[in-house]
Design a protein around this nucleic acid. Structure first.
Ligand SMILES: [Mn+2]
Ligand SMILES: [Mn+2]
Ligand SMILES: [Zn+2]
Ligand SMILES: [Zn+2]
Lengths: 162, 162
DNA sequence: ATTGATATTGATAATTATTCTCAATTAGTA
DNA sequence: TACTAATTGAGAATAATTATCAATATCAAT
């Protein structure tokens, strides 16, 4: 079973990762994961930090293949999985659709998605996070992660649909 | 894009559905959806209400195929989709795994899942729901649904893993 | 720099969950 | 009962992701 976003994790670790990502010290990110530095991996990290957030594996591939026409699909999937496992990237899933990825450089947040046009807003609500902890505690669970996705119609799509 | 659980929907409608499900008036449920009553559909509804909640399409199929060895896989998927669209059933997704289904007879709730053994607890937290509404409003969205899945280690699995 | 053990890669096959297609069958109604 | 449109089951198709494996590249030790 895939673990979503780690929650109870030490804050310090997060900060170190964030710094590495923001300084674009990609080589060290890769070495941190105990992996070898390759051009493919550097390109994937570049694509993830440069382009917009919430991209699919397919989209990452399309960006990377421009720079290295011979890169394989499997390499992208493989590395995205590793990045997710190490917490440098987080995986966002909505409905049964393809997973989307974003660098974890930013602070934790959840998503509010327009069901009509797909526009995504990021938000962070401390009260909700707190309440989640308390729910888990009530049931004797040790909370390790959560998925909170809100769905609705954005302002533009509300207008159009009337 | 698949809509999750409808939220803003009229309460009365929900109550009517709930009554039909609880009275096991399966034929009327099917007619309500503007569909023809077939043995297959009745069996699927039976399986959904009788067995435990949070079953996969596969699991529904396995139950139903006992009573009607000739039923097709597609029939189960097809009808589950219709039931979901009509709101009689709701679809729960965790990670990239197969969708799970449960009758919507019960009141709205979210899920707390053990990442180790898969045990699912249902909970309902009015404060969280309220906060979700307010987040959506802040962004100008009209909230239509949400997915809230908490992940953690249940008491038993905490013991085992030490 | 050269070497060599080991990790990584890309092509492609395999898997998994789900949907689609279509000819045969059936339900609801006149 | 007879008609028509909806439904069915088998299997093909699709889509996302993972596994396999021989060829290649990395990096630590020389
Ligand atoms: Mn985001
Ligand atoms: Mn439930
Ligand atoms: Zn929109
Ligand atoms: Zn457990």
């Amino acid at each position: 079973m895939t673990l979503p976003r780690q929650h109870s994790e030490r804050h310090a670790e997060k900060l170190v990762r964030r710094e590495k990502i923001e300084s674009k010290n990609f080589k060290n990110i890769i070495r941190d994961m105990g992996m070898k530095v390759t051009d493919q991996r550097l390109l994937i990290l570049e694509a993830l930090t440069a382009g917009r957030a919430h991209v699919t594996a397919q989209e990452v591939f399309e960006v990377v293949v421009e720079k290295d026409a011979s890169i394989g699909f499997a390499t992208v999937y493989r590395f995205l999985r590793k990045l997710t496992e190490s917490g440098f990237v987080n995986e966002v899933r909505m409905g049964g659709l393809a997973a989307r990825y974003e660098m974890s450089s930013q602070v934790h947040h959840d998503h509010l998605t327009c069901t009509h046009c797909g526009k995504i807003c990021e938000f962070e609500n401390h009260d909700i996070e707190k309440l989640q902890e308390s729910v888990a505690k009530q049931f004797g669970y040790q909370l390790t992660g959560h998925v909170l996705e809100l769905y609705g119609l954005c302002r533009d799509c509300q207008k159009k649909s009337t």
